[in-house]
């Protein structure tokens, strides 16, 4: 099959195929996110748990925080009764950050590492989410270890 204007067409096609397959090339030899399914159980067994179950918190934490803010700032209601009946003071800086005391560690910390540092940036970076919470809310002092 003779291709007329082949040069231009092939350049175009190479660009096209390059773009389409670029994720395959860019990720050559890279590894996937590793998640330790046991992490959540372990945390629980160690008596550490979030205000709501992890399955809920993972996709919905931002929503929860947003509603907390509304409740605290606008309604003046500060107490949160979790689904397990425990009460928490709704404060991002003073409740959440108590446990999530390090926001800068790598993703592994949350998902894989038994050191149980529930970090924020790890996950956020891995899916390229850049929340602007810390523009105002003061992140806990990073512990240099």
């Amino acid at each position: 099959m003779k291709i007329y204007d082949g040069g231009k067409i092939f350049v175009g096609l190479i660009i096209f195929v390059g773009l389409v397959t670029s994720p395959f090339f860019f990720n050559r030899g890279k590894s996937n996110i590793v998640r330790d399914p046991k992490a959540a159980q372990m945390m629980q067994s160690m008596g550490l748990q979030c205000v709501e179950p992890k399955a809920f918190m993972l996709p919905n934490h931002m929503q929860l925080l947003d509603e907390w803010r509304d409740s605290v700032v606008r309604k003046g209601n500060r107490l949160y009764k979790a689904s397990d009946g425990k009460n928490y003071v709704m404060s991002f800086q003073n409740t959440c950050m108590n446990c999530h005391s390090d926001k800068n560690e790598s993703c592994n910390a949350c998902h894989n590492n038994l050191a149980i540092k529930h970090t924020c940036d790890g996950c956020h970076n891995s899916i390229a989410v850049k929340p602007y919470c810390w523009d105002c809310h003061i992140a806990p002092k990073e512990k240099k270890s």
């Binding site: 395959f24 860019f26 996937n32 996110i33 891995s126």
Partner: peptide
């Protein structure tokens, strides 16, 4: 994160 895991699995 699961979605990213799946997507990354596809491209690697």
């Amino acid at each position: 994160v699961g979605v990213k895991e799946l997507a990354m699995g596809l491209v690697i």
